[in-house]
């Protein structure tokens, strides 16, 4: 069984951290803290100069990481460090250009070698995945698709071909915490389930345990990014214990749903 499949044996909590914010060493630590808190899968954001799908919180994290000299090779090293001590599923969330420059065959080969199980590319929609999908599959790396509130008749088209898990975008707009999560994800999940057995996780805007509990009633997993990034923004290098405590509160909510 692949590591990603294992993550969804129960209801999953998925945490996100921007790689290299505030340092590569801290990224390794934060991933391990999330695992201690009960995270089932961790997304590591590859920082990019122009993250067009991100709100202000993750934009700033990207800038902090780039200022600290973070590069893809350094992030692969971080993953190798994590892999020395744990088999927690790891996926990269990256804009396409850094991957494109690295080269698809080399990138996915390196993912497999270092222990990256999947890759989420927000600016590579279904129609454009063809150029990367062969190398991803060849190396056993899941290229994870996103489905949005506006996807409509695209939902099943995307779901049919999905690998790993499906990232259901809960809301319009960019990443960032929201007071209320619209319930449209329920219909999307129902529609997708008709054509796929791949797990569906909901993200965008989620920050509170009550929201996570509600979503987990329908979804296979809950994804949180900006709320964790805010902890890093606030506590910097000392964010580890805060991340673990927050992760635990969210994981508890997810499994109580």
């Amino acid at each position: 069984m692949s590591r990603i499949k294992k993550a969804f044996e129960g209801k999953a909590f998925i945490g996100f951290v921007t790689g290299g914010d505030p340092s590569i060493e801290k990224t390794v630590e934060f991933v391990l803290e999330m695992e201690k808190g009960g995270a089932d899968l961790v997304e590591i954001g590859v920082p990019f100069s122009d993250p067009v799908a991100e709100g202000p919180v993750i934009q700033k994290a990207n800038q902090r990481a780039l200022s600290a000299g973070t590069t893809l090779p350094r992030l692969f090293e971080a993953v190798e460090e994590v892999r020395k001590v744990t088999q927690i599923p790891l996926v990269f969330l990256t804009y396409l250009n850094p991957v494109f420059r690295f080269g698809y065959p080399a990138f996915f080969k390196k993912c497999q070698a270092s222990g990256v199980d999947g890759v989420i590319i927000p600016d590579m929609p279904y129609e454009e995945q063809g150029e990367a999908k062969f190398d991803a599959r060849e190396n056993g790396v899941d290229l994870i698709s996103l489905i949005a509130p506006t996807s409509k008749d695209r939902v099943q088209r995307i779901a049919k071909d999905a690998d790993g898990f499906i990232y259901v975008v809960s809301s319009m707009g960019v990443t960032g915490t929201r007071r209320e999560i619209a319930s449209g994800y329920k219909d999307i999940i129902a529609s997708a389930r008709q054509v796929t057995s791949v797990p569906l996780a909901v993200g965008f805007g989620v920050s509170e345990p009550a929201q996570a509990k509600e979503i987990a009633k329908t979804a296979d997993g809950v994804i949180v990014g900006s709320a964790i990034t805010k902890l890093v923004e606030k506590h910097g290098a000392d964010a580890g214990p805060h991340i673990q405590a927050y992760t635990k509160s969210m994981k508890d909510a997810v499994i109580s749903g």
Binding site: M124, P125, E127, L146, S151
Partner: peptide
């Protein structure tokens, strides 16, 4: 060329 854009905008 192409359409390298978030899924949210694809239908639009």
């Amino acid at each position: 060329g192409g359409q390298y854009i978030p899924e949210t905008l694809m239908n639009e």
